[in-house]
Structures are given as C-alpha cells and as structure tokens.
C-alpha cells in the first residue's frame, strides 16, 4: 500500500429509501430529507440526502475496502451538488499517505503497530461533485 494507490470505485444508487432511511437513522427530521413538497418549497427539486448519510457512506466505503481491522479516526467532508432520488453516486478514493500510528513517518511498516492511512475521496453524481474530503483510518497490525 502506498500513496497514489486507488480504491475500487463504489456505485451507490441514490434511492428514496436510502435518503429517508439514512435521515431517520441519524435522527435528522429536517423535512427536505423526506418530504418532496417541503423540499420544493425550499428551492430544491426533490428531497436530498442528509450530510450524516453521506458521511456514513464515505466511512463505509473506506472501511469496506480495508476490512475488519479498519477503524475510522478522522473524517472531513464537504458537500457540493445534492444527492437526489434516482441518481447514482460513484465514490472513488486515492491513498494520500501511509504512516505508522503516532510517529507521523511515512512508510514505517516494521513494528506492526497500527498504520494510519489517509484517503482522499470524491463522490460524483449527475450534477457534478456531491462530496469531497479526506478520511483517516487506522489498520490494526496491517501496515503492509
């Protein structure tokens, strides 16, 4: 594993069910995430995904890739174009840094301590870029 390595893309169909289930599971009852009429009254063409669901999908994309030893340490995301029903969000990721936990040195893989990996992620939909950001994940004893 090294900076520049890419994660396989993940296509996420943006269904109404996903938008509503994600909003309710995160206890976000803002009407724009479940009520199309209310969303239109506020200038959106339809309901759209809440940021917590996007956060969850991005986190899951990264931990799915690195497996059961992976633990999320930091996530910083910025939203752009909304995820509306019927769209498909394609998540892509690129490893930007790999270092042993705590010492901040690149490529220290010898001692088996958890590695910290930074992944730059982008999620695009038909309107453009829905989300961009950086995820830091630790990998227990898997620095190679």
């Amino acid at each position: 594993m090294k900076p520049g390595d890419e994660l396989p893309p993940l296509s996420v169909p943006v269904t109404r069910t996903l938008i509503v289930a994600g909003a309710i599971a995160s206890r976000d009852y803002q009407d724009v995430h479940h009520d199309p009429e209310a969303a239109r009254a506020k200038g959106a063409p339809d309901i759209f995904m809440n940021i917590v669901t996007t956060n969850g999908l991005v986190g899951r994309y990264v931990t799915d890739h690195f497996g059961s030893g992976a633990v999320l340490r930091k996530m910083a995301i910025r939203l752009g174009a909304p995820n509306y029903p019927g769209d498909v969000m394609v998540l892509t990721g690129t490893i930007t840094s790999v270092c042993a936990d705590g010492d901040g040195e690149d490529g220290n893989e010898a001692d088996g301590s958890p590695a910290l990996v930074d992944v730059a992620i982008v999620g695009t939909n038909r309107l453009g870029r829905h989300v961009s950001g950086t995820v830091t994940v630790s990998l227990a004893g898997k620095a190679s």
Binding site: L18, A21, I24, A25, S26, T53, G56, R60, L72
Partner: peptide
C-alpha cells in the same frame, strides 16, 4: 444505521458492538 447505509463492518454487530464513528450526530 448500519442497515440504512449498508455498513457490514463486524465491529458494529452483535452484543459487544461499538457505534460506527460516522453516525456521531445520531
């Protein structure tokens, strides 16, 4: 939450599950 976003990480299932960090705001 895990069902909604499709998170199947084993750390979030079962009796000794920990919460997925990304669901913090929930």
């Amino acid at each position: 939450w895990c069902e909604a976003v499709g998170d199947t990480h084993p750390a979030h299932a079962g009796e000794d599950a920990v919460a997925p960090p990304a669901m913090l705001q929930a």
